[in-house]
Design a protein around this nucleic acid. Sequence first.
DNA 1: TGACAGCTGTGATGCACATCACAAACGATT
DNA 2: AATCGTTTGTGATGTGCATCACAGCTGTCA
Lengths: 235, 235
Amino acid sequence: MTDNCANRMENEGCFMCKERHADWFCNLSPQALVEFETLGMQMTVPAGSTLFFESQSARSVYILCGGHVKLTTSSKDGKTLLVRIAKPGDVLGLSAAISGTAYEITAQAIEPVQVKSFQRQDFLHFIEHHLEGSMHATKMINQEYRDALGDATRLALSMSIAGRVARLLLEMTSGIRDAKPRFTMALTHEELATMLGTTRESITRVLSELKRKEIISIKGTSLTILRKSALELLV
Amino acid sequence: MTDNCANRMENEGCFMCKERHADWFCNLSPQALVEFETLGMQMTVPAGSTLFFESQSARSVYILCGGHVKLTTSSKDGKTLLVRIAKPGDVLGLSAAISGTAYEITAQAIEPVQVKSFQRQDFLHFIEHHLEGSMHATKMINQEYRDALGDATRLALSMSIAGRVARLLLEMTSGIRDAKPRFTMALTHEELATMLGTTRESITRVLSELKRKEIISIKGTSLTILRKSALELLV
DNA sequence: TGACAGCTGTGATGCACATCACAAACGATT
DNA sequence: AATCGTTTGTGATGTGCATCACAGCTGTCA
């Protein structure tokens, strides 16, 4: 989570972007990319700032180019749930933009983040006039649906607290290829707890347990995953 | 759940269908409806039969015209979870058809059901060539995503077993406008339990409790909801 | 009418986790 | 270095639900 943007200059635009993988939205034909490029605004967002809030009416769509973003939602009684940690390549706010309703989630940068931002209208107009863009958009929503469904399944079918913590840790290291990925944990146990729908004490206990079993190691704010496979087993 | 089809003859087609509400997929312009009508095959499915299975590759899309369909999914360890009870107007198998992958859920009729069935190719071709159809499809997937997200939220944020049972009962009576909706419960406690990710005994206890509090009443296989508001409070 | 199979109801026990309570560690400020 | 607020660690206790065990109950088939 530390230096995902390292190999890319700020605000250089899509053409020079080395990160455009096959399944990214912005992996478009050259012609489409030209237009796409002009519509969006490349920007850097500091850690901690919020791209958009739940129940705010959807005005923009963001493509996440570098860094990680925390996606949360909350129930009527005010409790907050971590939906997922968005990673480079994800499109944020797409669902709300398409349905013309409010954002269903809150998106907050947990580190300095590179995004390309689009006015909702511009983005919709683009996908309505480019078959490839439209297909990408539909597939991305579909993927989000499947992820959400998978989450619901796992949650309902007895995923333990340890399992949720494990999933979170794995999501936070997604993109780091190291065998023993290390990152700086910027969240307190309290924050982790509300994000995972549990309590501060449970988080403390689970992390202690993981340290005791030498699955992770914590030095200050730096967290290292020693045995990734053991974590995957818990999910 | 008893007689949703009563005011409609079997296999009469979309033109005569009185049930085409504003937000149904099949609420199309006359021209589009003509083509749509010829693509699909109207059929009646007996109670208990399965429209499609999870992980089967998606070959058809179904529009549910009348009756209710049980949508379930299961985790690796074999446990089954009720996703929702589909009601008239829902489109089944859309997500899988669009992404060209396997069905992510299993769809089983819990009563005699009227559906209009489409070959996947025909359906895709139709929505790719009719803007209104395409818009409907995207919005429906989006809605499914939002529902799934809502489910995940509720499940993660401490929805009790009683809450899940309440949700199920309310879903089963959706469409019945009666103040004290009644329907025939065709499922055993055992089946309910796996559908809700809990145990047979817990279901028995919760239902007893609801009877004791006079929120529902059960006579044989007929279940009546006496105080709907009390159920909604539990969800 | 009896016998058998599959449901339904209910108690006893155990476990995971929430909740409460408080102590120890850490970081900032002066 | 002393102080204070925040964060982390850890025990004690309570609760909801799974699990086990077993006893009625209902329908079916001979």
